[in-house]
């Protein structure tokens, strides 16, 4: 049943939230209609092409987000999306995003961080985050393959001396040697890509202790 357009105020803050190319369109309910049974319909548009396209899974939905990752998976294109609210026979005008450019705007998630230690060193192996994929069967693409200039800012905190220092690296393995034995060190890693300002997500802080110094351990026996 066609609705009367414009009687309802538009959804607000329509924006893409994008992490590792998983692109979710999200919005707020129209002003003054929080808690009311409003439904929404989403469309998207590929910049440079001719018409708006429907997203069938986001027609007459009550939630305030819609996963458009599949529709926006060609990250070198730019996109628009829009959403309108419906309540009974009334509906709002479309509320539109700005031009969304996944290649420049997606947040690069933190790498996986694997730590191993011995008495005086910590070895760190970093695995670049994975790009979003349609299905588990699909082969994985590393964000490194998309951003060849991907770098990592590794900071290491010595809990005993209360000192932190950092190192910017491009490779995936690094060893901090000559550390103090039996000392707890905490590591934090952030992915970084030169270019426009991007939100970043540091990794979980991981702490690991270097082993007892075997030489002193032997003398004690």
């Amino acid at each position: 049943v066609p609705c009367v357009s414009g009687d309802l105020s538009k959804p607000t803050n329509v924006t893409f939230i994008s992490i590792n190319m998983k692109n979710i369109l999200q919005w707020n309910p129209p002003e003054g209609l929080q808690g009311v049974e409003v439904s929404y319909t989403v469309q998207y548009f590929i910049y440079g092409q001719k018409k708006w396209l429907n997203k069938s899974e986001c027609r007459n939905i009550s939630r305030t987000y819609c996963d458009l990752s599949a529709e926006t998976s060609d990250y070198e294109h730019q996109y628009y999306a829009k959403v309108k609210a419906m309540w009974g026979t009334n509906c709002s005008k479309w509320a539109e995003t700005g031009r969304f450019y996944p290649f420049l705007e997606t947040q690069i998630g933190p790498p996986e961080v694997a730590l191993t230690t011995d008495e005086k060193s910590i070895s760190i192996v970093l695995t670049a985050p994975k790009k979003w994929k349609k299905s588990p069967e699909e082969s994985s693409i590393s964000m490194q393959q998309i951003y060849s200039n991907l770098k990592y800012n590794v900071s290491i905190y010595n809990t005993r001396s209360n000192r932190t220092w950092s190192q910017c690296v491009t490779n995936h393995t690094l060893v901090f040697s000559w550390l103090e034995p039996a000392t707890l060190y905490c590591v934090l890693v952030e992915s970084f890509v030169p270019g426009p300002p991007r939100l970043t997500q540091p990794s979980e802080r991981q702490c690991v202790s270097t082993l007892e110094d075997q030489t002193t351990a032997l003398e004690v026996k």
Partner: peptide, 13 residues
């Protein structure tokens, strides 16, 4: 070395 807030590691001594 590029500028940064934290000290930068140079060498093991």
């Amino acid at each position: 070395v590029r500028p940064g807030v934290l000290p930068v590691y140079l060498e093991m001594v």
